[in-house]
Design a protein around this nucleic acid. Structure first.
Length: 540
DNA sequence: ATAGGGTTAG
């Protein structure tokens, strides 16, 4: 009797002990889904107090929660507190990171796992390869390839398809093809991964040849294959081939879907055929297809001039109606579109209501400010990004911020940013950064410093760098530097009439009329003519 | 656990 009671008591307490963590686990899941960082933190504090935070199940959920909220350091700290008992937890964390787009973190955990001498299984390899593919790190991908071979995973269809995808994304299409050729049983996913590799690197013809040869071996293309081919030819601007494929696909009994349409539209936008892109979009709608986030965000850059803002607003309306306005791609493209069209406050409104921002979101807003003369706002936003989202700062962020410094004429700030970029963020200056620095110094009349900057460059200056020096020389009437700059410009860009006009007006300013006549004669001889400036106004 | 269409650029 006594033992029965004891057992029952144990059973009850065991059950309540079991159910309580489940309740908390669910709550954390919900907070992760809503990205309710504040509420989640409060719950975490409570779990530390009642001791449940130590449970593996709770800790795992908290890791997922912080990961979802973008608080990686929190996630990692928790992870490191959990004793390593089995590899499944490592693999789950790697998978979570890879799915969330946190590729560096995924790889970091993978190498930690290797350091702990835990053998990877074949399930973790695709996640890690996906991470390599996205960050274009084929060197690491190749190491993973080696590990896969050593572990005899190379017969696995998932591992092979992931290897092909990784090499394809990194531009090593021939390595991808080699993996495919060595596969004993070639499946459709692997084929499509090679086809994508070809299509995305302007080798659509190769892709087509491969698909045809596989067809003769009995592997039939599916809608993914067709859409990949369409995307490949559409990016190349080969519209004849695109419509042929569209027909072939129909004849094959495969119905084109919204991805097929979006691929065509994307190609048209890439090739600056905006009108046709919109026509195709209308055709797509008339065929009864509902646009997706990809359709909207691919079309928005085609509306990024003041004359096209009406189209942009229409797309914004579509996004609201079909309920995809919250998508980060759509919103980033909207921020950029409104900013480029000059509707800075509308851009800012969308920007501010975004709970998650990516580098494109931040950079678009910073560029929007910088290009419209809101230099202080651009610089303030850069400071805000440093505080809130430092890890998303990249070379474009600095281009935007330096452009703002240029327009504002804040030399010291520009110089310190140029330094911070290299020293703190380890970003090697690119041509556009040097062009900004030359522009910044040149505008202030510091032509010697500007020229010293050019001479210190470890990379070959391009026409924007020399152009900045030439423009500054012209504005400050400095003929010597103008001659140096124009000499380089002529070497780099012999066809550019604009630079010569700039130079000739400099000579005119300086009173060297005979030089002007000589230059203009030379331009006439080469039949170079500066295109007249033009603007676009939408007629209703 | 793998394959297709998407946002920033002087």
């Amino acid at each position: 009797m006594a033992s029965f009671r004891l057992n029952r008591k144990n059973a009850i307490s065991f059950r309540s002990f079991q159910s309580q963590p489940d309740v908390y686990a669910n709550a954390i899941d919900n907070y992760a889904h809503d990205r309710a960082l504040h509420l989640g933190k409060k719950l975490h504090a409570q779990l530390i107090i009642n001791g449940l935070a130590r449970l593996t199940i709770i800790a795992s959920k908290l890791i997922a929660f912080y990961t979802e909220c973008g608080k990686l350091s929190h996630a990692r700290k928790l992870f490191d507190k959990i004793p390593v008992t089995n590899i499944r937890r490592w693999i789950a964390l790697i998978g979570t990171y890879a799915r969330c787009g946190l590729y560096q973190e995924a790889l970091g955990v993978f190498w930690d796992m290797q350091r702990e001498c835990l053998k990877p299984n074949k399930f973790v390899i695709p996640s890690v390869l996906k991470a390599c593919g996205h960050i274009l790190d084929w060197k690491t991908g190749e190491k993973i390839h080696g590990i896969s071979v050593k572990c005899s995973f190379e017969v696995d269809a998932f591992v092979n398809a992931s290897l092909i995808d990784m090499y394809s994304k990194c531009g090593h299409v021939e390595k991808a093809r080699k993996v495919f050729d060595e596969m004993v049983v070639k499946d459709l996913v692997a084929l499509n991964a090679v086809v994508a590799g070809y299509a995305q690197h302007e080798l659509a013809e190769e892709a087509l040849v491969l698909v045809e040869s596989m067809q003769s071996l009995g592997v039939q293309p599916n809608i993914v294959t067709w859409n990949t081919l369409i995307a490949g030819f559409s990016q190349k601007g080969d519209e004849v081939m695109v419509s042929d494929l569209f027909r072939l696909m129909l004849a094959d009994g495969v119905e084109p879907d919204v991805v097929s349409w979006t691929s065509i539209i994307s190609g048209l936008v890439q090739n600056f055929r905006n009108e046709e892109a919109f026509d195709t979009f209308k055709q797509m709608l008339s065929h009864g297809f509902c646009p997706t986030t990809a359709t909207i965000s691919t079309l928005l850059p085609a509306c990024a001039t003041a004359a096209k803002v009406k189209h942009g607003r229409e797309l914004h309306g579509h996004a609201l109606v079909i309920g995809v306005e919250e998508d980060i791609y759509v919103r980033s493209a909207l921020v950029d579109m409104y900013a480029k069209c000059g509707f800075i406050s509308e851009a800012r409104t969308i920007f501010c209501k975004m709970p998650q921002k990516n580098m494109v979101t931040w950079n678009s807003m910073i560029f929007g400010y910088a290009n419209h003369g809101y230099c202080n706002e651009a610089i303030e936003l850069f400071n805000q990004m440093e505080k809130e989202d430092e890890n998303k700062i990249d070379h474009l962020t600095f281009t935007g911020a330096l452009t703002a410094c240029c327009h504002a004429g804040t030399i010291e700030l520009g110089q310190s940013m140029f330094k911070i970029m290299q020293e703190k963020y380890k970003i090697a200056p690119r041509l556009e950064h040097y062009a900004c620095m030359v522009d910044l110094l040149g505008r202030a009349g510091k032509l010697y410093e500007a020229y010293d900057t050019i001479k210190s460059m470890p990379i070959e200056p391009d026409l924007f760098v020399w152009g900045a020096l030439l423009a500054a020389s012209r504005n400050h009437g400095h003929v010597d530097f103008a001659e140096i700059a124009s000499k380089h410009l002529l070497e780099l860009e012999p066809e550019s009439a604009g630079n010569r006009l700039l130079l000739s007006s400099l000579y005119a300013d300086a009173g060297k009329w005979e030089q002007v006549v000589r230059l203009k004669k030379m331009m006439k001889r080469k039949r170079l003519r500066k295109l007249p400036g033009c603007s676009w106004i939408e007629t209703v």
